[in-house]
Every structure is written in structure tokens, then in C-alpha cells.
Design a protein around this nucleic acid. Sequence first.
DNA 1: TATGAATGAGCGTTCATTCAT
DNA 2: AATGAATGAACGCTCATTCAT
Lengths: 231, 231, 231, 231
Amino acid sequence: MDGARIALIPLCKNEYIDEEDGDFTIPTSQFSSSLPPMQRPDEKKRRDIMKIAEAAFAARPFHEVRLEEIAARARIGKGTIYIYFRSKENLLVEILREGLGDLQASIERRLLQCPDESVAKLRAIVTELATFAISRPYMYSLVRSVLPRSCETGLSGIHKGIVKKIVEVIEKGVERGDFADTHPALTAHYLLGAVRGVAISGPGKLSAEEFAEHLMVVFGRGLCAREGASR
Amino acid sequence: MDGARIALIPLCKNEYIDEEDGDFTIPTSQFSSSLPPMQRPDEKKRRDIMKIAEAAFAARPFHEVRLEEIAARARIGKGTIYIYFRSKENLLVEILREGLGDLQASIERRLLQCPDESVAKLRAIVTELATFAISRPYMYSLVRSVLPRSCETGLSGIHKGIVKKIVEVIEKGVERGDFADTHPALTAHYLLGAVRGVAISGPGKLSAEEFAEHLMVVFGRGLCAREGASR
Amino acid sequence: MDGARIALIPLCKNEYIDEEDGDFTIPTSQFSSSLPPMQRPDEKKRRDIMKIAEAAFAARPFHEVRLEEIAARARIGKGTIYIYFRSKENLLVEILREGLGDLQASIERRLLQCPDESVAKLRAIVTELATFAISRPYMYSLVRSVLPRSCETGLSGIHKGIVKKIVEVIEKGVERGDFADTHPALTAHYLLGAVRGVAISGPGKLSAEEFAEHLMVVFGRGLCAREGASR
Amino acid sequence: MDGARIALIPLCKNEYIDEEDGDFTIPTSQFSSSLPPMQRPDEKKRRDIMKIAEAAFAARPFHEVRLEEIAARARIGKGTIYIYFRSKENLLVEILREGLGDLQASIERRLLQCPDESVAKLRAIVTELATFAISRPYMYSLVRSVLPRSCETGLSGIHKGIVKKIVEVIEKGVERGDFADTHPALTAHYLLGAVRGVAISGPGKLSAEEFAEHLMVVFGRGLCAREGASR
DNA sequence: TATGAATGAGCGTTCATTCAT
DNA sequence: AATGAATGAACGCTCATTCAT
């Protein structure tokens, strides 16, 4: 049994991992990530469903969420969900795609409006992350906790896009001598992870502003090039 | 055996009769302290199951993990799992409890061995977190997968214990003038979240040492009292 | 739909959040009074299932009856049973409730139509009991097969109702001097037990009429006030 | 669906009934009814188990009785039961066989001691039945409620033996002009059923003597030859 | 002989999904 | 488009039975 060392070393971060012997083949899920956006007879109803479902998926783990319950809460028939979404998993994916898409969009919008200065850009990102974390805290709890197969669904693309944006800002700051960081990608993950950690299990009663401010203190200093007492 | 008089005298005609002592829990020895050297639930087998199951739970989301498959991989009968664990959820909880418990224990051990100095203590914690993240990355991905009910399962207690340890170190550092932090609890969550983020979706090919070192740079600076250009 | 504001705002970080209204029972229409002329649970199908299941429960003991088999015989899906019945036990209870209810109803109907005379009333009851025993003999064999919990299921209520009816008739007869019986409740149980005994293990090839007639002879005499050589 | 009339008319009273299409073949149970009495290493322990199990089988329906519970109550290992009994069903059969055997034996003993007179003989039987019903009321609840396949187990033989004894007494009484009964076998079933009915659901607080006395009044009169106003 | 850990067939039940209306 | 009754594959779990000790 000792020889049977488990081989579940994550081959590919960012994704649920497959096993050594291939027995655990992840069934190719049935969602094309790009969206020939299905006819949406009633866009408002679609949003309703997503809103209700977001709450439900946040309230309990995926396998405990019943579509019947979502339908009942949305005051529609169970079958109706299938007019707007291909499956339960697809429903969640769409919710996350939208949520992360919103976040990505608002980060990009904010960056465009902001002066081309390293700390200001960092602040722009941090502010958006904090606002998102406070206003839609459960979005975070969904991202990876329940979601396998994020590659196929295009979600990891959005996630990577956000990471990339942060990395760019840090790298630009390093170039300019404003920041000192030997591994900006790591730092980007710190930032996202930190925000997520607070969103999920952080202290209650925290305003987005306080949160952003504190993040700026810690990460601003942490990235600051001017000195470096790490010891 | 004569004293064991049966108490099932029908108290009430017309109905099946209940037993004197109500719930009569069968004294399932469940690892009872000491038994005749007969067969006993096998602690090693319990660990085997947990090891296999940890891999399975890491490989796919909770609702796609089949106990039958775990049993097959562990080369035991399906029912055997239920000798050692109350339910599928309990199995996962035990895995997490053990994992988080290990982490907590190693942090505490390391803190005891380490000089009573703020940065050294921070380093001790960071080193353990990084080591854990690299060596058991999927532990992190599990934490929220069935973690509603985390209160009842005692898991959140362990998590809080770890947070508390970090907070203590930061607060002590602040008292001594080594650290500057207006909200240590937030920072503790940043640290845990950051580690988690890297464990789950961070860049591959990262050694625990590199990881710890980089964390120390960012968070060490971020906490550093000596100056503070967050702007 | 705007008023249906989602209440799933995480009240408590660090834990999956519960819903405002707790148990939120889905308004499964379960034969709700009036619905748009859409599909509705089909009362006829319910009866079909009960008919098939009655046969199955009569053919073997409870724990050997397979719902899958009942479903197959009824040519429906296994899940469909659960649309109409809460559980296997509930299915049996409903069968019994209906059966005993029928018996009770037919006894009461017959009593209303019959002249207000002691022997005639006894005959009315006996006739219905005999008819029931001959036409649905397995109903009797079911009565106690899952009848712990008979209180909770309301079955014992029906049974008691029947007993009470018989007792009333006897007591009236005693009042009038037609019957002599010091313990009518006992006699009522004799009658039911006797019928049950014959239904279950009595001689075959017995018509309801013969049976009723013979019962009348034995119990008619047994109750008769006119003389009393019990010795 | 109308044509699909259920064919579960009990072909053979006294046994669970098979279905028209033979799908429901009752698995030949694995107990020889006659007893090469297996080595009984410890006869006392065997009795203990039976005593405990009798209570358990009386307390809940067959399928809810756990051998583990019986073992625990008897303070023996689960496997030990299988030293004394071939299976769970066999355990129940043995309990019933013994119980009914006791009843049969005591009836026969009493009949031998009693004057050769019709009413006295009836009284002998009734007294034993009443005593049995009062002192071991749950024996009755077991006899048919849980037990399929009684033919193969030899139980129905004992039951038939008792019926036969009663029938003999009645027939002798008829021959002698003491009793009038056109169908003694039916009456025998009445008697057994009546006793069973009282044992299971009759009024509480009834002494064996009262019970026997009342039975004699009703059945004594019911069988009495001297007159016959059943109308 | 006695044990109780181990087994695994087999169950009741659920719920995402389909489809007739 | 909308519905919800119907489905049935697939699950978690139980427990009578076996067997190594």
C-alpha cells in the first residue's frame, strides 16, 4: 500500500486534476464556452433565474442545490430553466462568467480612467476587487469551490485575464522603478486570494472603502521599491 | 444473563411496543479504548481510506465522487467505509480536519522552536503555510466544497485557530513596534487567502522555499513599520 | 419579480448562509385544488399503483417487496411512485387506509339501510365483514405487517372506528334485551379476529354468503340473551 | 389497464400467494422444517437468544429488527447467532415453532387430564388459548404478520395441528348432540382468530381467567345445540 | 466456541432532464 | 414559450452473512 502512492499531484493548476491511471476521466462537459447565444426569448427572465440561482449556489454546495427550488423561487416551471440554460452546470457557469466578466470589465474601465501611475493603477484594481468582494461575496465562493472543468467552460480564461491585468500593472511598476517584485504573477494571485479569503471568511462589517484602503497599505508597502526589510 | 430480563412487555396493546431505554445505541466499539486482542477496527485502514478519498475529492467535485470507486481503489468493500466514517460528508470532513489539524500543529510546533522575534515568527508561519500549500495543494480546494455546516463539523474552529495564531503574531509585532497594521485579522485572511490562491491556481513549478521567500518579501514589507508609502 | 428580492445576503461570513424562511417547502401542487388545465397528478394512476402494490404486498412480506417491481408492473418509472407516495411505507399505509376505510364505509352504509333491530344490525356488520374477507383477503394479512406506527398513520383510528361500531350495536342489543354480553369490546375483537383468521388461513372455497351465515349462527347464538348454557 | 385485473386471489390460504405469471417465485427458503437439531453447544445460550429475539420481533416488524441489536442485547457477538441459527428467518421460525409447540403441547396435556365431556373439553382448549394469549401476546403478532413460507418451515403444520384438535373436539360434541355446528373448521378458525385479535389489539388489563370465561360464554353458546335463534 | 470486522448485493430514494400538453 | 408530470440512471447506505482470528 506504500507503493501505491497517490499520484494526484496537480498536473495543471487551475483545474481539477486527473489521476495517474486515467480511470478518472473527466467527462467532457457539454458546454461550448463560446456562446452562439441561444435564442433568449425573455432576457429579463434569464436574469431573474440567474439572480435566484446565484443566491442558491452561494447558500449551499452545488450538489445540494435543487433546480426545482430555483424554479419555485423564480416562480417558473422547472422546464423553463432548460429553455435558458443547457444544464445545471451551465447555469452556474453562466452566473460565474457573468460575475467575473463584470469584475474584469469594471477593472478595465477603471484602469482606463486612471492616471498612468503605478500606485494609482494598483489602487484602481484593488478598489474594484474590494468593491466586488463586499458587494457580491458569494461569487468568490463559487469560483473554484464547486467548479470543475473550468477550462472547458471558458471561466479560467476570464480568471487568467484578470490575473494578467494585475501582472501587467505590477510589471509596469517594476519597470518604472516604483515596485520591486521578483514574481509578479505570484503577487497577483496573492491579491486575488486575499480578496477571496476576506470575501468568504473575513470579518463582517467591513466597508469596501476600508477594505480597499487596508489592502493598499499591505500590498502597497509589500510592493514598494523604496526599501525592503523582509528580515 | 438472568438479570437481563427482557423489558419488551407490551405496554400498550394495539401498537408495536417500544423498548425501555429508547434509543438503545448498540455499543459499536468504534475504536473503544481496549478490547480483547480480537479483531479491531484498523487505524491503518482508516488512513488508507482517507488517503485514497483525499485524492478522489481533489480530483472532482464532491457530488461526482463515488464512494464505490473509493472503496474499489482502497481494495475494500463499500460497507467498510461506513465502519470508519459516518457518511460521505463525514469522510471529507475527517480528511479536512486532519489536514488542517496537521497544518495547525506544525505551525504551533514551529512557533515554539523559533526565537521570540516578530519577523522570525512571521517567517515561521509563512514557511509552514507555503510548505503545506505546495505539498498538499488540493487540501485547499476541498475546504469549501462541502463546507456549509463547517461550524458543526468543527472545521471552522481549526480554521479560526490558525487565523488567531497569525493575528497574535502580528499583534505582538505591532506592540513591539516591529509591525504596523491597523487590522491584523484582515491581514491574516490575506495571508491564508494568498496561499490558497497560489495552491489552487498559482503558477506551477514553485518550490516551497521560493514560495515562502516571496511571501516574506511581500507580507514582510507589507507589515513593516519602518516606513509606509502606500501612496 | 422585483419585489422578490433575494434574501440570501450572507448573514454570516465563514459559513454557508441559510435562507430567510427556513424550510422553504416547494409548493408541490400535490393535487392542489385547481390548476391551469396543464398536466396534473393523475388520480387514476395513483389507484393503479395502489392496486398493483396491494397485490405485491399481499404476495410477500414487506421487506421482500421491491418498489422497482411494482413500478415495472404498473408500467411506470420508479420515481413516479414518489410523486404519489412519500415512501414505501406510506404506500402500504395508504393501501390499508383505503381498504379499511372502504370496509368502515360499507359497514356504516349498510347499517343505515337496515331496520333498527339488533340481530339485523349484527347481520349487516357480519355480512360486510365476510364479504370483505372473501373479496380482499390479503388486506387482512397486511394490517400488521408494517403496523408499528399505526397510531401515527391513522390506521388504528379506522380500526378502532370499526370496533366501536360493532360495540355500539352489541350494547344497543344488550340494552334492548336482545343480546347478553358482559364485555362487548371483547366480542367485537372476537368477530374481527375470527374474520381475519378465516381470511388468512381459513378453508378455501367459501362463499361470502356461507361465511356470513355461519358467522351469524355462531355469533348470533353466542350473543343471544334467551338462554345461556356455557357450562 | 382494465384488462390487467390482478390475479392475486389467494390460491392457497395459509400461505403468501403467488402471482398469475409466476414472476414472483417465492424463493425456497433454506430451512428444513424437521430438525436434526444441530449441535447446540450451549442450550441455555440458545434460549437466551430466542428470548431476546422474541421480544425484538414483537417490538417491530421483521425488516426493522437488526440481528446486531439482538446480539448486543444478548451480550454476545453477532456471529454467535449463526452458531445457533441458520439465518434471521430461521431464528424467527424457531421462536414461533417453540411458541406454537408449547401451546399445542399444553392443549394436549390439558385435554388428557380433562373429563371426556364436550363442554369441558372446549373449556380446556379455551383456557389454554386464553392463557397463552395473555402471557405471550406477541407470539400471536408474529405468526402470520411477518412470516411467509410457513409451509416449508413446518409452522403451518403446528398451526394445523391445533386447528385439528379443536375441530375434533367440536365434531365429537356434534356427534354427541352437545354441539351444533355445520362447519367446525370455520369455528376453529374463529376461535384462534378471536384469541389472536384480543392478544394483539384487545383491551388491556384482562386476566386470562376473565378472558377464558368470556370466550366460553360466547363460543359455548355459539356452539350450543339446545336452540338456535340466529335470526 | 465466540467474535466482530469485513463484505457487497440490493435497497429506497433523489433529481437533472425530457416531452406531451 | 412555458409547464410540471414522468422518467430512470445512479447514488448513498444498510445489514444479513461470512470468516480470519
